[in-house]
Design a protein around this nucleic acid. Structure first.
Lengths: 333, 333
DNA sequence: TCATCGCGGCCACGATGTGACCGCATCGCT
DNA sequence: AGCGATGCGGTCACATCGTGGCCGCGATGA
């Protein structure tokens, strides 16, 4: 269709009107200011038609400002409505990545990611996965990267209440096919978790997204279901309380849990629980000795700890640290 | 224009063709699958026209799949090109926020943010600023939030090499009007920095974005200029070396700088410099005693430190910590 | 002062969008 | 197997709309 043989001059193919309007909008989004001549040349239309196109955009409630005079031109400024965003490949990837690694996650971010996932060209998918894999530097260095596309698909499924299949790799490394009703997506401690009702096992389960592969929506829809705990985050925390990793440290702090969270910089691989109004207990559990020691040390540096329970490896490390500190206090100052 | 008095039924106003195509695209982005009837109803056109609209989208290289049969419908799947993203208010804010707080920042992310900033409706701007202010929880709690819009404007200015004016508040609190050539935007240690050539002072300066207000592009353009250090990050680091905050700690570590960075979880408010192949020096400098102590403790927890220099407040804190640790090693285990 | 640019009215012509028909293929349900 | 719902695309007649080429106007900057 749209044969348009003839000129085919330069780069302009003189497509249909909607296409041309999108191209115009796209150009206006890339650069702040364009002269009429530049635009007519790129769009391959007469100046009169360009003016009409601009007028059409204005009718669509997108504010295009024009300034007359020698140094005149057209500019797209913020209007009443948000015009369609016309992104290039790089930008789309950057947005997907930013949304997936966002620390503060709202439902709207998941919806946006779902939209993007739906339309992201196939050729960009491997690239995005690669970038996502390389970008797990922050904020938790040992955090396995979660594929933004997996997150996007799950967000869409959740939004549409679609029963979803996927492949899950449990902690022992075995893979199994699962069928669940995805209810919540939660980012916690640098990991993404799916809270879902497993229809095969007839119970609630949490899944780590970095262990989850190839999610596929099925045609089945599911009704809203009452979560065991009203709050997804609470539910997740109660699950974590069960899970214990290689090194676990428990510290009692003589300060309210809120104040500790305030004064502590960065998130903790573990949890802080109130023990009365001015006391709380922090529990750090991780696979890495370095990480465990560092966060334990950071907590102790608050100077409000009253008791601590730690495995020998951690205690040794910290004991050695204390010894070195004591030495220096005597000698250096 | 576009009077269309008459039916005005339900919600459909039967706008122009480009508008309708955008609405169709928007609908297809919101939900995975739509039946033809739903779409004709919402768009206010006949089924035949809907089919033609779908065909038009396909001609524009957006893959719309249709499935015949009782449970049929239309679906937008990823095609060759990225269709225009049609976002609602919430999603736009979520994306702006995610881009501005992204830890890994590429040029493409800045470009995307600049685009978004250009078109973000005025009514959303205060909301975005408010959300951004509230969302400074992570990853550095004391980090003042940077307004994503400020970042967006500067990214656009930089991209277009536009000389830029803004108001800057220096460390003493005084505000001054600046005119600069914005060359780089760098995120470092939870802060955003603008590296720019100050045309009034005829020298390179770095500006913290959270102290920067009301950036405005001027009409002037600037040429590329050689940065003092080739790498923006290096330049920033060399500036930091000069700047000293309230509490500064220096630690010598008997391990290569690379290994330290690898083993250390989370970024450091300071820098790590090599001192030979198997030795490095870490310098922590911050305004907050809590933060300084926590990161110092984390570094010490690596167990590879051989010397340390710290101000009395920090030394006291850590000394007390060491004492408590020593007590416990005796009593508890 | 003048050239340059954006603005918008007018006109004539051609292109295109539209709804109403049609028969066809595919799918799910009975 | 058959039926109905659905998507697909062809054709036709009609109305609408887009287009380029004019024109004069007003604002801007050299």
């Amino acid at each position: 269709m749209t044969v348009s043989m003839g000129s085919m001059s330069e780069r302009t193919v003189r497509g249909t009107l909607p296409q041309r309007l999108l191209r115009l909008l796209s150009l206006l989004q890339v650069r702040r200011e364009w002269s009429g001549a530049e635009l007519t040349e790129r769009l391959g239309v007469s100046a009169r038609t360009l003016r009409r196109d601009v007028e059409r955009l204005r009718d669509l409630d997108y504010r295009v400002e024009g300034t007359p005079g020698t140094a005149g031109g057209y500019r797209l400024v913020s209007g009443r409505d948000l015009p369609p965003l016309l992104l290039d490949d790089e930008e789309a990837i950057a947005i997907a990545l930013a949304l997936a690694t966002a620390t503060e996650v709202e439902d709207s971010a998941l919806r946006a990611l779902a939209k993007l996932e739906r339309v992201l060209p196939a050729r960009l998918r491997p690239r995005l996965a690669a970038v996502a894999g390389a970008a797990s530097i922050v904020p938790y260095p040992d955090t396995p990267a979660v594929d933004p596309l997996v997150l996007g698909v799950l967000a869409a499924c959740r939004h549409e209440r679609a029963v979803t299949d996927f492949v899950y790799r449990d902690r022992s490394g075995g893979e199994s096919e699962r069928r669940v009703e995805p209810h919540h997506l939660v980012s916690h401690g640098g990991h993404w978790y799916l809270i879902a009702y497993d229809t095969d096992r007839d119970d609630w389960r949490t899944f780590r997204l970095d262990r989850l592969r190839d999610p596929r929506p099925t045609h089945g829809r599911f009704p809203l279901r009452e979560t065991p705990e009203s709050d997804p985050a609470t539910f997740l925390t109660s699950r974590f309380a069960q899970g214990t990793y290689r090194y676990t440290v428990t510290i009692t702090l003589e300060l309210s849990a809120e104040r500790v969270r305030e004064r502590l910089y960065g998130p903790l691989p573990g949890r802080i629980e109130a023990r009365g109004t001015d006391r709380c207990e922090a529990r750090i559990s991780a696979e890495s000795l370095d990480l465990t020691c560092q966060y334990t040390a950071a907590l102790l540096a608050l100077g409000v700890d009253s008791a601590m329970e730690a495995p020998p490896e951690v205690a040794d490390r910290l004991g050695a640290m204390a010894a070195r500190l004591a030495d220096r206090t005597g000698s250096e100052r």
